[in-house]
């Protein structure tokens, strides 16, 4: 019998890394403050003690350097896990993570791959201001050659991270500072979650809500509110945006006839716009309304609490979109 236990999102991440490091010596962790400090967000707490300084490596604040170093090591056949304290900081490592990792296999005609996982906090943390609140999926999902996972809960975080580490391709793993303390059921037994498999986390008949990462929780809140109005929402957690399991969304929309996509990145040229486009294409005759989208406001992330709250996707905005999409305004 599987033991039911609840652990935090950060613990799930640590378990995934630790299990894979026990399993495979090629796996190592590097990043800022991951070792002696026990992780800026305590994700890697205790890992230095277990694995030693050769496998849990503190780096200087030097993203371009250590991201590139990890890629070189991956070309040698190793499997680095690189922690970005924040994905916002990955922008100074744009060349290695976008020009090297995703293209190495292709440019070398299949000779050298990059089995590297880059992971860290993505999205608004809470009054961190404009430079520290990036949702990089808006930028990076445009690039072929990388896989992008954005788990919304501890169970998915662990299963997807293990898959990411065990795989042979570069993965961008997008966590959220705001979810690290979230608790959820995670079995003791080992499990992996394949990429490209969305999960229907709430069944409904009137409107499909498609999202990933932290906004999934806002979708659930909104669905609860809508239920009170008699609008039944089906909520889908896509879990990975590359690969994108559009099939699960399409099947749902064919049933509901309405769709709202919720994406924390900016709207212009985003994963959200991609999902909407694909739903329009595949459900052209099934939709009763155009696909509605809820994104962060198209402005730099503000600092003031009230502005930041209004800036981000939230349950109220999602509820409004559902009512509009289902003609219940």
């Amino acid at each position: 019998m599987s033991a039911v236990r609840e652990i935090e999102y950060r613990d799930a991440l640590r378990e995934a890394m630790s299990e894979e490091m026990r399993r495979d010596k090629r796996v190592f962790l590097l990043g800022e403050e991951v070792a002696e400090y026990n992780g800026a967000y305590k994700i890697s707490r205790g890992m230095l003690e277990e694995f030693g300084a050769r496998r849990v490596i503190d780096t200087p604040i030097s993203e371009s350097g250590f991201a590139g170093l990890a890629i070189g090591a991956a070309m040698m056949g190793l499997k680095p896990v690189v922690e970005f304290m924040s994905w916002s900081f990955s922008l100074v490592a744009a060349d290695p993570i976008l020009n090297n990792a995703p293209k190495m296999l292709y440019m070398s005609g299949g000779q050298f791959g990059c089995p590297v996982v880059f992971r860290g906090n993505d999205g608004a943390g809470g009054q961190l201001g404009s430079t520290h609140s990036w949702c990089v999926e808006g930028l990076f999902s445009n690039v072929p050659g990388i896989k992008i996972a954005i788990p919304s809960n501890p169970y998915d975080a662990k299963g997807l991270l293990k898959t990411a580490i065990r795989g042979s391709d570069p993965v961008f793993f997008l966590e959220s500072e705001r979810m690290l303390g979230n608790k959820g059921e995670v079995p003791e037994e080992e499990y992996l979650i394949p990429f490209g498999q969305a999960k229907v986390i709430r069944s409904g008949t009137d409107c499909t809500l498609a999202s990933w990462g932290r906004p999934v929780h806002f979708c659930m809140e909104a669905a609860e509110e809508m239920q009170k109005l008699g609008i039944s929402c089906e909520v889908i957690d896509l879990r990975t945006v590359r690969p994108l399991d559009i099939g699960t969304v399409v099947r749902s929309v064919k049933k509901t006839g309405a769709c709202v996509v919720v994406d924390q990145s900016w709207s212009f040229g985003s994963p959200g716009s991609e999902v909407a486009s694909q739903v329009h294409r595949h459900c052209f005759d099934d939709l009763d309304n155009y696909v509605h989208r809820v994104h962060s406001a198209d402005v730099p992330t503000p600092y003031a609490t009230n502005l930041e709250q209004e800036y981000l996707p939230n349950a109220r905005k999602i509820a409004e979109a559902v009512r509009s999409a289902t003609y219940n305004l």
């Binding site: 590139g68 890629i71 070189g72 070309m75």
Partner: peptide, 10 residues
Amino acid sequence: TPLGAGLAFG
């Protein structure tokens, strides 16, 4: 240049 360091590190 970071790749070169990574190769030797590897």
